[in-house]
Amino acid sequence: MGKSKRNSPKPDSNRAQKLAARRAAQEAAAQAVTRPFEGLAAECDLVALREFVPSATATLKLSPNVAAKRAVTLATVLPGAVAALVRAGDEPTGFVGTQVQFQSADPAADLAAAILWTQSAAPGESLTTATVEGAPRLSEVLDPGAALDLTVHQDFNWWVPEGVTPDPQVAATIEQADQAIMPSARLELGADAVGAAWWVDAGEKAHIRWVRPEDEDQLMLALARLHAAGDLHLGEGSRFAGSFRTHGLLVPVFDLDREKHASEWEAPARAFDAKLRAALKSDTPLTSEERRSRDGLRSRQVTLR
């Protein structure tokens, strides 16, 4: 006997569309690169710029393999959330965005393709979506050992070249974007500190979101050791709020007293980083209290992508 077709959805039915969308989402998840920026010295900052930093720019150091025609500036988001654009002027400059409207399963490939596009595009052109097929790895387009020399902005006035008066529509767009910005800063922790710690004033509270490059499981064990010892904080006026996972990295988050300036958290953050690195070196089995801490920390963990 043949199989019953009673449960087979009609091709144009809502159920068929939902099943097709579900399969597409599952296929995209299977193709997603777990840790796209791995191997780059700027990995932690690239993750931060892509996920939560509102307005920042950095001039990229391209690989000698790239026949560079013009300089390229990395940005959090460009007008219209496009992938890239080339700003006209005496010396045309390429801009590439990390927070884009359309993306593939590999954000590093998106960025590599967008950077290469800026080298051949004409001034005044913009790229809505990067074509990643055949694109080289990002580590072949950027200098993998170069950190980002970041400029953090508290507005989006950099969207318009200096000395240029924007038309009313552009000015209104910038004003609207500025209203959504929360004051942010990257903590300067010195060469010995690990990862990228970003401060933000979210209104009622301030936070530090610290993108760490260590293995997720090992970092969670180290955080559990500090929690059990009462050291999972950045000093007076702070508390551990939880963590989230994104692009293969774990990001601890701390709630802060917003009355303190971002720079006032740099010394406590350096002290915490030293404790955390010491905990990461420990290979002793977790105590029962540390295991309870680990389980509690995991229950408060969120996965973004």
Score class of each variant (00 low, 15 high):
residue 243 S to A: 15
residue 228 A to P: 00
residue 133 E to Y: 00
residue 40 L to M: 06
residue 221 L to F: 00
residue 252 P to Y: 01
residue 158 W to P: 09
residue 149 D to E: 14
residue 94 G to D: 02
residue 213 P to N: 10
residue 237 G to F: 08
residue 88 A to D: 12
residue 97 G to P: 04
residue 20 A to Q: 11
residue 268 P to T: 10
residue 175 E to G: 15
residue 65 N to S: 13
residue 74 L to E: 02
residue 95 F to W: 13
residue 20 A to Y: 04
residue 136 P to N: 03
residue 58 A to T: 03
residue 192 D to H: 10
residue 176 Q to C: 06
residue 54 P to N: 07
residue 10 K to L: 13
residue 171 A to L: 12
residue 189 L to C: 09
residue 218 Q to K: 15
residue 277 R to V: 11
residue 224 A to I: 00
residue 233 H to K: 11
residue 82 V to Y: 01
residue 185 A to S: 15
residue 295 D to W: 01
residue 171 A to H: 11
residue 259 E to I: 12
residue 209 R to Y: 08
residue 195 G to M: 06
residue 263 S to P: 04
residue 167 D to Q: 12
residue 267 A to Y: 10
residue 41 A to M: 04
residue 28 A to C: 05
residue 165 T to Q: 15
residue 90 D to A: 15
residue 90 D to P: 06
residue 200 V to A: 13
residue 124 G to N: 11
residue 236 E to N: 14
residue 254 F to R: 09
residue 74 L to G: 06
residue 83 A to P: 08
residue 17 Q to S: 08
residue 33 V to M: 05
residue 127 L to K: 07
residue 297 L to V: 07
residue 100 V to Q: 12
residue 207 H to S: 11
residue 127 L to S: 09
residue 186 R to M: 12
residue 66 V to K: 02
residue 179 Q to K: 15
residue 19 L to H: 09
residue 63 S to A: 04
residue 90 D to I: 07
residue 85 L to G: 05
residue 76 T to C: 13
residue 277 R to N: 14
residue 8 S to E: 14
residue 119 Q to C: 04
residue 257 D to N: 15
residue 262 A to K: 12
residue 191 A to P: 08
residue 134 G to K: 05
residue 8 S to P: 05
residue 273 D to Q: 10
residue 143 D to A: 10
residue 102 F to T: 00
residue 260 K to L: 15
residue 92 P to E: 01
residue 149 D to K: 15
residue 224 A to D: 00
residue 77 V to D: 05
residue 248 G to M: 08
residue 290 E to F: 01
residue 279 A to Q: 07
residue 295 D to M: 08
residue 232 L to E: 03
residue 5 K to M: 13
residue 148 L to A: 05
residue 226 L to M: 02
residue 238 S to T: 12
residue 186 R to N: 09
residue 21 A to T: 05
